[in-house]
Design a protein around this nucleic acid. Structure first.
Length: 188
DNA sequence: TGAATGATTTACT
DNA sequence: GTAAATCATTCAA
């Protein structure tokens, strides 16, 4: 589970749409460990229409909407019946930067294009339509990339989860400028 | 049927 | 630094 999350770092996410296509290298993810993890939506074995896809086969997209305005994109990682997922928190744009910039209404070459869960979903035009999609056959898919070193840290935005919030299940590429936040050292 | 809340981002002081 | 935006999903009655 955690190794799967780490393996996601460095892979490429591609989304083809009518407007063109965009791609990015995944530089930050978080692991969510189903029933045991209070921070996970599937905590306690909860099974609802929203979490249903996590109980299905791996390689599918778990997309959900929060705070009334943001989508988050997850990769279902484990076998049927085990509701574990990896949240894609940030990517480094590699193609279609101008299209992303147009969607985000920001200038190209801007790091803020994709350095957050809600941001990258908007830049990639990921929404409810991608829910449950197969990430190997659909318009939204993953591709292998060069393996690279990863760092780990506690997860973000789940303080309500108590001790689980301190589990170092966030993986990121320390060499990328597109990681969402919590950089260890000064920006320069 | 109704009320509470969140795996966030953005804007403003 | 703090606060507001905003709505699908979820839990209670």
């Amino acid at each position: 589970m955690l190794s799967v999350a780490r393996d996601c770092i460095g892979k490429h996410l591609i989304h083809e749409t009518d407007d063109g296509w965009v791609a990015g290298r995944i530089v930050e993810v978080e692991a969510y460990r189903g029933p045991e993890d209070r921070a996970a939506h599937s905590f306690g074995g909860r099974r609802t229409p929203r979490t249903e896809v996590m109980y299905g086969p791996p390689g599918h997209a778990y997309v959900f909407f929060v705070y009334g305005m943001h989508w988050n994109f997850n990769l279902v990682t484990t076998e049927v019946g085990a509701p574990h997922a990896v949240l894609i928190r940030a990517v480094e744009p590699t193609a279609g930067v101008e299209l992303m910039a147009a969607r985000r209404k920001l200038p190209p070459m801007h790091r803020d294009l994709t350095n957050g869960p809600g941001k990258l979903c908007r830049a990639f035009a990921i929404d409810g339509a991608a829910y449950g999609g197969d990430l190997t056959t659909g318009a939204l898919f993953l591709s292998d990339g060069p393996r690279c070193k990863t760092a780990r840290s506690p997860r973000i935005g789940i303080d309500y989860a108590g001790e689980w919030a301190r589990r170092p299940w966030r993986f990121y590429d320390p060499g990328s400028a597109c990681v969402s936040r919590a950089r260890p050292g000064p920006p320069a």
